[in-house]
Design a binder for these strands. Structure first.
Length: 263
DNA sequence: GCAAAATGTCAAG
DNA sequence: TTGACCTTTTGCA
């Protein structure tokens, strides 16, 4: 489920599992050919910005990972079992190992290349130094729909299709409304809500945005507890007003909204 | 057993 | 704007 919260959670996990220790890095599948150049080095730090994950190694090299649509990490206690399926990268530390499958990017880069990646990214709501004035400057001047602007990683880094749709629902904003027609106070509220929602996502390991008063009293441990208001709920009734949820394609991605609650 | 879908990005035209 | 790509899981025969 790779939106920004997933990558921050992984960075935190990998930091705890591997930072400060020598790790074995291999590519059982063989496509990560640079694995040998970092095999056996000390992983000094793991960090995330938006949907990008970085493993910093002693001596300077950085492994840059982007999960894309289907990339996943799994972990198991060491010693690791034989790899199953197409494992692009396997990292084994003293107590745990982790396998990476299906990423869009898994490559060794240097400091300059890492900076170049960060230069293309907007503020990340999960980072304490994120300045909402930057996305606001872009949004308030744009004729593009707010639904598209929120997905633009140069505007805000880390928001994906679920957070985009859910955030707009929670703030009663139609995804087709132009950026310049979003109010400043409205944006400020949405930003602080986004920060809170994504922090919850990091903590829970999954996206949960439905307020208790809208989940029909389902206990928090219920496996079928509703997690979203609109995402992938096309045709189902809005949890607040009962209107069927609409869906359409916007710039190649599915957008979902309630035509009554969002204007 | 096979097709379709999935929370993403990039490059070609 | 369209298609390609990375891999697993789900659903339907």
């Amino acid at each position: 489920m790779p939106e920004g919260h997933t990558l921050h959670r992984l960075a935190r996990l990998h930091q705890r599992r591997f930072a400060g220790t020598h790790v074995a890095v291999t590519s059982p599948q063989g496509r990560f050919t640079d694995a040998e150049t970092i095999d056996g080095r000390v992983l000094t730090r793991a960090s995330a910005w938006g949907k990008h994950l970085f493993h910093h190694y002693e001596g300077g090299p950085i492994v840059h990972v982007h999960l894309g649509l289907y990339g996943t990490f799994t972990e198991a206690p060491a010693p690791m079992p034989a790899p199953v399926g197409a494992v692009r990268m396997r990292i084994v530390g003293t107590e745990y190992g982790t396998d990476l499958r299906g990423p869009t990017a898994c490559e060794v880069i240097d400091e300059a290349q890492a900076s170049a990646i960060l230069d293309r990214l907007g503020p990340d709501p999960l980072r304490s130094d994120a300045d909402p004035a930057l996305p606001w400057a872009r949004i308030s001047r744009s004729r593009k729909p707010i639904g598209a602007l929120l997905m633009d990683q140069t505007v805000i880094a880390g928001v994906g299709n679920v957070y985009r749709n859910e955030l707009l629902y929670r703030h009663h904003i139609d995804p087709y409304r132009r950026g310049r027609d979003v109010g400043e106070a409205e944006f400020a509220q949405a930003w602080s809500d986004l920060v809170a929602l994504m922090k919850t996502g990091v903590r829970r390991g999954t996206i949960v945005v439905v307020a208790p008063e809208h989940d029909h009293g389902a206990p928090s441990y219920a496996p079928d507890r509703p997690r979203t208001y609109v995402y992938r709920r096309a045709g189902e009734p809005c949890r607040v007003c009962g209107t069927p949820i609409s869906t359409a394609e916007m710039e190649g991605r599915n957008v979902f909204w309630c035509p009554t609650c969002q204007t």
